[in-house]
């Protein structure tokens, strides 16, 4: 940033964009605001972000928005095409597809959030610790991630779920088990890049413990790359969860999870295409939105990779 912009910005904007922040807090918020400005300039990323916010709101407000109960069967009106009464039609048991999609959004988004909450902190801490400590722990960790990365994610998740028992919880655990190695790798790479910096040496000389250096000084700096990776990974997590549901290894049929909905409606594809297609479109929209946002975030947070 060269000079502070001379536009008629509010005082908040001026405070955020100040070239001489007076506190750490101001500098931090200013940095976030600049990133936000960069991101806002990318229409595709904004489209992704808005879609995600709408999806989350729709899932949260499912009880208010859903016109019918997701389980209410109406057998005389099964496989009905989209109409004013049922915007997206009804499924093989006459259940309203729109209502099921809204409720199912809670499951799909809930699974994604659970996986990320489980995986990101573990990957971050393990990667940073291994990168900083080095030596044998580091080599062991890298071999372990190699092994996990040696299986395609879906296939390893399938084997895990088959061994536990098919269901949402098992699916979350299985996806989490397959998702952590890349995070650990990224955190490690970031750590290796900064572990020999002068400010780390200075902190060490000042008597900071290893734990403190890792948690307070290294971990926050690795966060940016991790966020990019997480947002790009979200779409892959959604697709894996949906594929597990589709193959009958994730959420089980009465549940309105999107992948499971596609699986149970697949046989009506030729006669009533909207029944399996609507949940598939929902999965596609959610996954595309996360990809668009992740792509934009990568450009903003990681200009090195900008292409």
């Amino acid at each position: 940033m060269s000079a502070a912009p001379m536009t008629s910005g509010t005082s908040l904007r001026a405070w955020l964009l100040s070239d001489t922040p007076t506190s750490r807090r101001q500098a931090g918020w200013g940095r976030l605001y600049r990133l936000w400005c960069d991101l806002r300039a990318n229409p595709l990323a904004m489209a992704g972000l808005i879609t995600i916010v709408l999806l989350i709101l729709a899932a949260l407000a499912a009880p208010l928005l859903a016109p019918y109960s997701p389980d209410a069967q109406h057998l005389s009106n099964h496989l009905a095409p989209p109409s004013a009464a049922h915007w997206l039609g009804t499924d093989e048991l006459g259940r309203d597809i729109l209502s099921r999609l809204l409720w199912g959004g809670r499951i799909t988004l809930g699974m994604v959030v659970s996986v990320v909450v489980l995986v990101a902190p573990v990957g971050l801490i393990v990667g940073c610790a291994a990168g900083y400590i080095g030596g044998l722990p580091d080599r062991v960790l890298m071999r372990v991630t190699d092994v996990f990365l040696a299986f395609p994610r879906l296939i390893l998740a399938l084997a895990f779920v088959a061994a536990i028992t098919p269901g949402i919880t098992s699916a979350i655990i299985a996806i989490a088990l397959t998702a952590w190695p890349p995070y650990a790798r990224i955190a490690r790479a970031e750590t290796l890049a900064i572990r020999n910096s002068d400010f780390i040496a200075a902190t060490r000389l000042a008597g900071a413990s290893r734990t403190r250096i890792i948690l307070v000084h290294i971990l926050p700096l690795s966060l940016g790359s991790l966020i990019v990776r997480v947002s790009l990974d979200m779409s892959s997590i959604i697709l894996t969860a949906a594929a597990l549901g589709f193959l009958g290894m994730g959420a089980q049929p009465p549940s309105p999870e999107w992948g499971a909905m596609v699986a149970s409606a697949r046989r009506f594809l030729v006669n009533a295409w909207w029944v399996p297609m609507m949940p598939a479109i929902a999965i596609f929209v959610a996954s595309l939105a996360f990809n668009l946002l992740g792509d934009g975030l990568r450009d903003v947070l990681d200009p090195k990779q900008r292409s």
Partner: peptide, 22 residues
């Protein structure tokens, strides 16, 4: 290409069946 990495494979397969077969 972003759409390609976002679309569930089973959706693409079903689309193809609806269009090219049905």
């Amino acid at each position: 290409s972003l759409a390609g990495s976002s679309i569930p494979v089973f959706m693409l397969a079903m689309l193809s069946l609806v269009v090219f077969y049905a």
